[in-house]
Amino acid sequence: MPPDTARTRAKLLDAARAEFAEHGIAGARVDRIALRAGVNKERIYAYFGNKEQLFQHVLSESLQELTAVVTMSSDDPAEYVAQIYDFYCARPELLRLLLWEALYYGHEPIPDEDRRATSYAVKLQEFAEQLGVQPTPDVAQLLFSLIGVAAWQSTMPQMARIILGTETESEQAQARRREHLVEFTRQSIAAVKQPQA
Protein backbone atom coordinates (compact mmCIF):
# COMPACT_ATOMS: atom_id res chain seq x y z
CA MET A 1 0.00 0.00 0.00
CA PRO A 2 1.50 3.39 -0.97
CA PRO A 3 2.38 5.63 2.03
CA ASP A 4 -0.23 8.25 1.07
CA THR A 5 -2.94 5.62 0.91
CA ALA A 6 -1.92 4.19 4.29
CA ARG A 7 -1.94 7.66 5.87
CA THR A 8 -5.36 8.46 4.40
CA ARG A 9 -6.80 5.14 5.60
CA ALA A 10 -5.35 5.73 9.08
CA LYS A 11 -6.86 9.23 9.23
CA LEU A 12 -10.23 7.90 8.16
CA LEU A 13 -10.15 5.06 10.68
CA ASP A 14 -9.23 7.45 13.52
CA ALA A 15 -11.99 9.86 12.54
CA ALA A 16 -14.48 7.03 12.12
CA ARG A 17 -13.60 5.60 15.54
CA ALA A 18 -14.43 8.91 17.19
CA GLU A 19 -17.61 9.36 15.14
CA PHE A 20 -18.90 5.84 15.75
CA ALA A 21 -18.05 5.97 19.46
CA GLU A 22 -20.08 9.17 19.77
CA HIS A 23 -23.01 8.40 17.46
CA GLY A 24 -23.13 4.65 16.77
CA ILE A 25 -23.60 3.02 13.40
CA ALA A 26 -26.99 4.53 12.61
CA GLY A 27 -26.15 8.01 13.90
CA ALA A 28 -22.67 8.35 12.40
CA ARG A 29 -22.36 10.48 9.28
CA VAL A 30 -19.91 9.84 6.47
CA ASP A 31 -19.67 13.61 5.85
CA ARG A 32 -18.55 14.21 9.44
CA ILE A 33 -16.01 11.37 9.28
CA ALA A 34 -14.52 12.82 6.09
CA LEU A 35 -14.48 16.31 7.60
CA ARG A 36 -12.75 15.08 10.79
CA ALA A 37 -10.16 13.26 8.70
CA GLY A 38 -9.70 16.12 6.23
CA VAL A 39 -10.32 13.67 3.41
CA ASN A 40 -12.80 13.51 0.53
CA LYS A 41 -15.71 11.26 1.55
CA GLU A 42 -15.36 9.28 -1.69
CA ARG A 43 -12.18 7.78 -0.17
CA ILE A 44 -14.35 6.14 2.51
CA TYR A 45 -16.36 4.26 -0.09
CA ALA A 46 -13.26 3.43 -2.13
CA TYR A 47 -11.31 2.03 0.84
CA PHE A 48 -13.99 0.56 3.06
CA GLY A 49 -17.28 0.20 1.17
CA ASN A 50 -20.36 1.38 3.02
CA LYS A 51 -20.76 2.80 6.52
CA GLU A 52 -21.45 -0.59 8.13
CA GLN A 53 -18.27 -2.01 6.58
CA LEU A 54 -16.31 0.99 7.83
CA PHE A 55 -17.69 0.36 11.32
CA GLN A 56 -16.53 -3.26 11.12
CA HIS A 57 -13.02 -2.11 10.11
CA VAL A 58 -12.92 0.30 13.06
CA LEU A 59 -14.19 -2.27 15.54
CA SER A 60 -11.89 -4.98 14.21
CA GLU A 61 -8.87 -2.68 14.54
CA SER A 62 -9.90 -1.74 18.09
CA LEU A 63 -10.31 -5.39 19.08
CA GLN A 64 -6.90 -6.19 17.59
CA GLU A 65 -5.41 -3.46 19.81
CA LEU A 66 -7.11 -5.05 22.84
CA THR A 67 -5.74 -8.47 21.89
CA ALA A 68 -2.23 -7.07 21.43
CA VAL A 69 -2.23 -5.28 24.80
CA VAL A 70 -4.23 -7.69 26.97
CA THR A 71 -2.64 -11.12 27.04
CA MET A 72 -3.03 -14.20 29.15
CA SER A 73 0.73 -14.52 29.59
CA SER A 74 0.76 -14.26 33.37
CA ASP A 75 0.38 -17.29 35.63
CA ASP A 76 -2.35 -15.35 37.40
CA PRO A 77 -5.70 -15.28 35.52
CA ALA A 78 -6.79 -12.42 37.78
CA GLU A 79 -4.06 -10.31 36.18
CA TYR A 80 -5.61 -10.95 32.76
CA VAL A 81 -8.95 -9.61 34.02
CA ALA A 82 -7.17 -6.62 35.60
CA GLN A 83 -5.51 -5.90 32.24
CA ILE A 84 -8.97 -5.81 30.63
CA TYR A 85 -10.04 -3.29 33.28
CA ASP A 86 -6.91 -1.18 32.63
CA PHE A 87 -7.48 -1.22 28.87
CA TYR A 88 -11.10 -0.10 29.15
CA CYS A 89 -10.20 2.63 31.65
CA ALA A 90 -7.63 3.97 29.18
CA ARG A 91 -9.72 3.41 26.03
CA PRO A 92 -13.43 3.45 26.82
CA GLU A 93 -14.27 4.09 23.15
CA LEU A 94 -14.00 0.34 22.45
CA LEU A 95 -16.77 -0.31 24.97
CA ARG A 96 -18.89 2.32 23.27
CA LEU A 97 -18.30 0.68 19.89
CA LEU A 98 -19.29 -2.72 21.30
CA LEU A 99 -22.44 -1.24 22.87
CA TRP A 100 -23.41 0.45 19.60
CA GLU A 101 -22.82 -2.84 17.78
CA ALA A 102 -25.10 -4.62 20.26
CA LEU A 103 -27.83 -2.02 19.81
CA TYR A 104 -27.53 -2.07 16.01
CA TYR A 105 -27.48 -5.84 15.46
CA GLY A 106 -29.39 -6.99 18.55
CA HIS A 107 -29.61 -10.78 18.54
CA GLU A 108 -28.77 -11.03 14.85
CA PRO A 109 -25.35 -12.38 13.85
CA ILE A 110 -22.64 -9.76 13.47
CA PRO A 111 -20.61 -9.62 10.24
CA ASP A 112 -17.41 -11.20 11.61
CA GLU A 113 -19.00 -13.42 14.24
CA ASP A 114 -17.21 -16.62 13.20
CA ARG A 115 -13.76 -15.00 13.40
CA ARG A 116 -14.50 -13.47 16.80
CA ALA A 117 -15.95 -16.74 18.09
CA THR A 118 -12.72 -18.49 17.10
CA SER A 119 -10.66 -15.83 18.87
CA TYR A 120 -12.69 -16.16 22.08
CA ALA A 121 -12.51 -19.97 21.91
CA VAL A 122 -8.72 -19.61 22.05
CA LYS A 123 -9.01 -17.23 25.02
CA LEU A 124 -11.36 -19.65 26.78
CA GLN A 125 -8.90 -22.51 26.25
CA GLU A 126 -6.02 -20.41 27.63
CA PHE A 127 -8.13 -19.31 30.59
CA ALA A 128 -9.15 -22.89 31.39
CA GLU A 129 -5.54 -24.05 31.13
CA GLN A 130 -4.45 -21.40 33.61
CA LEU A 131 -7.17 -22.59 35.97
CA GLY A 132 -6.10 -26.19 35.44
CA VAL A 133 -9.59 -27.23 34.35
CA GLN A 134 -11.41 -28.12 31.15
CA PRO A 135 -13.10 -25.31 29.14
CA THR A 136 -16.59 -26.25 30.27
CA PRO A 137 -19.72 -24.08 29.92
CA ASP A 138 -19.24 -23.02 33.57
CA VAL A 139 -15.70 -21.83 32.83
CA ALA A 140 -16.97 -20.00 29.73
CA GLN A 141 -19.66 -18.31 31.87
CA LEU A 142 -17.01 -17.33 34.42
CA LEU A 143 -14.79 -15.78 31.75
CA PHE A 144 -17.75 -13.91 30.25
CA SER A 145 -18.82 -12.64 33.69
CA LEU A 146 -15.31 -11.51 34.65
CA ILE A 147 -14.89 -9.63 31.36
CA GLY A 148 -18.24 -7.98 32.07
CA VAL A 149 -17.23 -6.97 35.59
CA ALA A 150 -13.93 -5.57 34.27
CA ALA A 151 -15.75 -3.53 31.64
CA TRP A 152 -18.81 -2.46 33.60
CA GLN A 153 -17.24 0.42 35.52
CA SER A 154 -16.09 2.14 32.33
CA THR A 155 -19.35 1.28 30.59
CA MET A 156 -21.51 2.90 33.28
CA PRO A 157 -19.57 5.86 34.71
CA GLN A 158 -22.76 7.47 35.97
CA MET A 159 -23.67 4.35 37.97
CA ALA A 160 -20.13 4.11 39.33
CA ARG A 161 -20.35 7.75 40.45
CA ILE A 162 -23.78 7.27 42.06
CA ILE A 163 -22.92 4.06 43.90
CA LEU A 164 -19.22 4.54 44.61
CA GLY A 165 -19.15 8.30 45.13
CA THR A 166 -17.91 11.31 43.23
CA GLU A 167 -14.22 10.39 43.27
CA THR A 168 -14.54 7.50 40.80
CA GLU A 169 -12.07 8.90 38.26
CA SER A 170 -9.09 9.54 40.51
CA GLU A 171 -6.05 7.27 40.20
CA GLN A 172 -6.58 6.12 43.79
CA ALA A 173 -10.21 5.17 43.10
CA GLN A 174 -9.26 3.28 39.95
CA ALA A 175 -6.48 1.48 41.82
CA ARG A 176 -8.96 0.46 44.57
CA ARG A 177 -11.43 -0.83 41.96
CA ARG A 178 -8.64 -2.75 40.22
CA GLU A 179 -7.58 -4.30 43.53
CA HIS A 180 -11.18 -5.26 44.28
CA LEU A 181 -11.54 -6.77 40.79
CA VAL A 182 -8.40 -8.89 41.23
CA GLU A 183 -9.62 -10.22 44.59
CA PHE A 184 -13.13 -10.81 43.22
CA THR A 185 -11.63 -12.72 40.27
CA ARG A 186 -9.50 -14.89 42.54
CA GLN A 187 -12.50 -15.75 44.73
CA SER A 188 -14.65 -16.51 41.66
CA ILE A 189 -11.96 -18.77 40.22
CA ALA A 190 -11.55 -20.58 43.56
CA ALA A 191 -15.32 -21.24 43.63
CA VAL A 192 -15.24 -22.77 40.13
CA LYS A 193 -12.19 -24.92 40.92
CA GLN A 194 -13.68 -26.41 44.10
CA PRO A 195 -14.83 -29.98 43.57
CA GLN A 196 -18.59 -30.33 43.57
CA ALA A 197 -20.03 -32.46 46.42
Score class of each variant (00 low, 15 high):
R178L: 05
Q196L: 14
A68F: 01
G148F: 14
A68V: 01
L12T: 04
E101M: 12
S73W: 02
N40F: 03
R91D: 07
A21N: 09
V133E: 06
Q56T: 05
E19K: 04
L63A: 05
L54D: 02
T71G: 09
E179H: 09
A160N: 06
T185S: 15
Q194Y: 10
R178G: 07
E93F: 03
M156P: 00
F127T: 15
S74R: 01
W100I: 00
H180M: 14
S188Q: 14
P77Y: 08
E42P: 00
A16C: 02
T67Y: 04
A16T: 03
A10I: 06
V58A: 04
E101A: 11
T118S: 14
L143V: 13
A128R: 15
R29I: 00
V139I: 15
W100P: 02
Y105Q: 03
G27E: 08
I162F: 10
Q153F: 14
Y88P: 00
R161F: 06
A46F: 07
E52H: 00
I84S: 11
A68E: 10
E113G: 05
V133R: 08
E108Q: 06
Q130F: 01
L98C: 08
F184I: 12
R178Y: 06
F20D: 08
A173M: 02
I147K: 15
Q174E: 04
P135G: 12
E65W: 01
Q64R: 09
R176N: 10
M1R: 09
P2Y: 00
P77V: 06
R17T: 06
F87R: 03
E101G: 08
G106N: 03
H57N: 05
E19R: 04
E108I: 00
Q53S: 06
Q53D: 06
A15Q: 02
D112R: 04
D86C: 10
L63K: 08
L94V: 11
V192C: 13
Q64W: 01
T168I: 09
Q125F: 14
V192P: 12
V70G: 00
N50F: 02
P195C: 03
D31W: 06
E129I: 01
G132E: 09
A82R: 12
